[in-house]
Amino acid sequence: MTLYAIYDPKPGKPALPAAVPEKFSWFAALLPPVFLVVHGLWLELVGFALAVAALVFATSVIGEDAAFPLYVLGAVWLGFAAPGLRRHALAWRGWTHRGERVALSADMAQLEAIR
Rank of each mutant, 00 (worst) to 15 (best):
M1S: 14
M1F: 08
M1D: 08
T2A: 11
L3M: 04
L3D: 02
Y4P: 01
Y4I: 05
Y4V: 04
A5Y: 02
I6C: 05
I6M: 06
Y7P: 00
D8V: 08
D8W: 10
P9N: 13
P9V: 15
K10Y: 08
P14T: 07
L16G: 11
A18Q: 14
A19W: 00
P21E: 15
K23E: 15
K23Q: 13
F24S: 08
S25V: 01
S25G: 05
F27K: 13
F27T: 13
A28V: 01
A28L: 07
A28C: 06
A29H: 06
L31R: 14
L31G: 12
P32C: 06
P32E: 02
P32Y: 01
P32K: 02
P33V: 07
V34Y: 15
V34R: 15
V34E: 14
V37H: 12
L41K: 10
L43T: 09
L43W: 13
L43M: 11
E44N: 08
E44S: 07
G47V: 03
F48I: 02
A49C: 10
L50V: 15
L50Q: 08
L50W: 08
A51V: 00
V52S: 07
V52H: 03
A53E: 00
A53Y: 03
A54K: 01
L55C: 01
L55R: 02
F57Y: 07
A58D: 03
S60P: 05
S60Q: 12
V61S: 05
G63Q: 03
A66R: 14
A67D: 01
F68G: 04
L70F: 10
V72K: 15
V72E: 10
L73M: 14
G74N: 07
A75N: 10
A75W: 03
V76D: 04
V76I: 15
G79K: 02
F80L: 10
A81I: 01
A82F: 03
A82R: 03
P83C: 09
L85Q: 07
R86A: 06
R86I: 10
R86Q: 14
R87L: 00
R87F: 00
R87V: 04
A91H: 01
A91E: 12
A91R: 09
W92F: 11
R93T: 10
G94H: 06
G94N: 06
W95R: 07
T96N: 13
H97P: 09
R101S: 01
V102F: 07
V102D: 03
A103N: 02
L104G: 11
L104Y: 02
S105C: 00
S105G: 03
S105D: 05
A106R: 09
A106M: 07
D107W: 11
D107Y: 08
M108K: 13
A109E: 00
L111K: 14
E112K: 15
A113F: 04
A113D: 03
R115I: 11
